[in-house]
Amino acid sequence: MSTSESPQSHIDVGDGAAIPTKSDVGLFTAWRIAFVGSIACCIFLAVYKPDPYLAIFKFVPDGILVTFKVTVGAILLAIVLGLFTGLGRISTNRLVNGIASLYVEVIRGIPLLVQIFYIYYALGRFVRIPDLFSAIIAMAVCYGAYMGEVFRAGIQSIPKGQMEAALSLGMSRRQAMRHVILPQSIKVVLPPIGNEFIALLKDSSLVSILAVSDLLRRCREFASESFTYFETYTVIALIYLVITLFFSKLIGIMEERLNAGK
């Protein structure tokens, strides 16, 4: 090989200290371009071609509200479910551990869309509850399993010595969990919970197949009345993108704050 070959003839792949950090301008603007760009698109379309875009934008806010209701309701329920599942997964009680593990394995093995149908119709057989609630429960049951793994990993990431130190001071396992292990786990699990939140926000579009008027369903209703399928789905994609980008930034900032506190 000749040494005169240009050193620029290969692509640098960063590793270790060379991995670009989040504060690097190039990466930072990627988020900016997407966020500002998608908002600009929305405004441009609404102003430039009010028919049908402005009509669509006027039609969807109800749907956004429903999407948020489903997402927030499901994530809160999933966190509670996930905490208990995570604790169950590390329990030495075989029955508790078995139930928690079975729950995780079963849920992870079934597609979310199938679960939503199944839980919706299964619930419908026994109780009469509003569709919105069945949708929330279906999403929460699914995400609770994933959240359980987040909590399990978070608890197990705390060094064994912490539990031993707490026990050696005379604390019960429950006291040690509450005062020593869980407070430390929270820092570990917050970022993955944030990611689960975003994933759930996107997956919440699946509940539109039930009789829940979320963002996607509202738009589908509009499209089928006005036959503006392309325009409507453009708007849906943009709205989901703006919401998701907004939250991912929020979570990124939160994560940085947590790390700064160390």
Partner: peptide
């Protein structure tokens, strides 16, 4: 029994989310 038996570990095992004072007062 453990209440009456103090234990000191090789790796200290202080509670990192609590101040020194809180480490001493928690138990």
């Amino acid at each position: 029994v453990r209440e009456e038996v103090g234990m000191v570990f090789q790796s200290f095992n202080l509670f990192p989310h609590k101040t020194v004072l809180e480490n001493l007062t928690l138990a």
